[in-house]
Every structure is written in structure tokens, then in C-alpha cells.
């Protein structure tokens, strides 16, 4: 049972903690979220400590991430969207950090928990809704209306509404499932290696095959780790852009 591929997602309390009747223990997941955030903060602090005109490698990386997210935001929602830059930047780096740190063997992947991805998604959707109502008041409902004859516009509005409501689910599920599946697959392959190596004889020699597969999968997981952070961030940008501009420029 110890080799269950799901075991890596188990949340184990490290320091039991209770607050207002809730169990808010400091767990292995909390630890890794702290490590991710601490690592990112440290990275940022060191990277931009000197603010050199000709950047060091670290500073270059920090600037690249900054300009990447700024460009993403600018591309989707224009100048108006730059207000949300710190928010999107944080989301992107938090997910990217969690995904990448999660690839360290033995690390806990915070984004492989539906609770975390759903919370991040709800934060985005909440921001979108609040922004929409602040900017447009009840006009925000025009988001669901397209310029078309009534007999098309009405069912389309319904579809748009359903699609809007499905967003939290798709956004959180995409990230969660990708992380979960990737890590499960790696664990399953690793289980094969152990099982084959332990079987003795020709089978032991065969254990090299899943080992090679793990190398390939790990490379793929690095891609997925980045890609999912990017997808989450850019979808957040697009949703925010819709809240800012409605359908004006789309």
C-alpha cells in the first residue's frame, strides 16, 4: 500500500493547529506552499536587489517573467488591464512555482489539490465579477448578449451564461487534473521500476524501460508545469479582459 501512486497526494499534518473549530494544521502541503512562496520571494529579492542596468542572470529571469506576464495582460486586455498586473503576476508565479517545485522528488505539489486550484479560480472569478459590476453596473450582463436577431441571441445568452458558470470548474479542473495525472503517471512508472527490479532475472534488466519512460515523462511534466501556469494565467487575463471591455474588442 505504501507504493500507491495516490499516496504522494496525501496531506499529513506536521504541526497540529486549530482555529475557531477548524483544523488548520500546518501540513506537508502548507510547508511546500511556504517553500514555494519563500523561494519565489527570495528569488525576486535577490534578483532585483541591485537593479542593474545590465541585468544579471537572475535579474534577467525576473524581468523576463515580469515582461511575460505584462505582455500577456497587455495583449488580452490592453492598458486597462495593467491594474491587475500584481494579481495575475502572483497567480502565474504561484502556480508556476508550485508546479515546478512539485517536480522535485519528494516534494508536495500544492496545485495537485482541487481545493487549491478551485480557491485560486474562485478568486479570479470573484475578481472578474466584482470588476465587471464596478465598471459597468448592471451593464455587465451585456456580457451574455451578442448582436444578433432575437431568436439567436436568446439561446446564445443562455449558452454564454452556462459557459460563464462552467468556467470555474474548467479552469480549476484543468490545472488540478494535469498535475494529478502527471504525478500519478510518474509514480506508477516508478512503481514499475521498483517492481521489475525486485522481480529478479530478465525482469530486472527490463526495469530500464520504465526508467527511460520516466525521464521522458519528467521532461513532459516540466512542459506541462509551465504550460498549465501559462494557461491559467492567460485565461484569467481573458476573463478579466471580458469584464473590463465586455465584448467591445473581441
Amino acid at each position: 500500500m505504501a507504493a500507491s501512486p495516490m499516496e504522494q497526494f496525501t496531506i499529513k499534518p506536521i504541526i497540529p493547529l486549530h482555529l475557531g473549530g477548524y483544523d488548520v494544521s500546518f501540513t506537508n502541503q502548507s510547508l511546500w506552499m511556504c517553500i514555494v512562496v519563500g523561494g519565489l520571494s527570495l528569488f525576486m529579492a535577490i534578483a532585483v536587489w541591485n537593479r542593474r542596468l545590465v541585468p544579471s542572470r537572475l535579474q534577467s529571469m525576473a524581468e523576463m517573467s515580469y515582461e511575460f506576464v505584462a505582455g500577456m495582460l497587455n495583449m488580452t486586455s490592453g492598458e486597462d488591464g495593467l491594474k491587475f498586473f500584481p494579481f495575475i503576476f502572483t497567480i502565474f508565479l504561484f502556480i508556476l512555482g508550485s508546479n515546478f517545485f512539485g517536480l522535485i522528488p519528494g516534494a508536495y505539489t500544492a496545485t495537485a489539490q482541487l481545493c487549491v486550484t478551485l480557491a485560486l479560480t474562485m478568486l479570479v472569478i470573484f475578481t472578474v465579477i466584482v470588476t465587471g459590476f464596478i465598471r459597468h453596473g448592471l451593464g455587465f450582463f451585456k456580457l451574455f448578449v451578442i448582436k444578433a436577431p432575437l431568436f439567436i441571441a436568446v439561446p446564445m445568452a443562455l449558452l454564454e451564461f452556462i459557459s460563464f458558470c462552467a468556467r470555474p470548474m474548467s479552469l480549476s479542473m484543468r490545472l488540478f487534473a494535469n498535475m494529478l495525472a502527471g504525478h500519478t503517471m510518474l509514480a506508477v512508472m516508478a512503481g514499475f521500476v521498483v517492481a521489475l527490479a525486485g522481480a529478479g532475472g530478465v525482469l530486472s534488466a527490463l526495469s530500464i524501460a520504465p526508467m527511460l519512460l520516466i525521464i521522458g515523462l519528467a521532461a513532459l511534466e516540466f512542459l506541462v508545469a509551465f504550460l498549465q501556469a501559462y494557461v491559467f494565467a492567460i485565461l484569467s487575463c481573458i476573463y478579466l479582459s471580458e469584464a473590463i471591455h465586455l465584448h467591445d474588442n473581441h
Binding site: Y22, T27, M33, V36, V37, T90, V116
Partner: peptide, 14 residues
């Protein structure tokens, strides 16, 4: 609860 609690803290910090 624990996940949300620590997510809030770490996310807010970042």
C-alpha cells in the same frame, strides 16, 4: 480548512 488557510497566507504573502 487547512489548505485554504495556508493558501490564503502564502498567496497573500507572495
Amino acid at each position: 480548512p487547512s489548505q485554504l488557510f495556508w493558501l490564503t497566507i502564502t498567496f497573500a504573502f507572495l
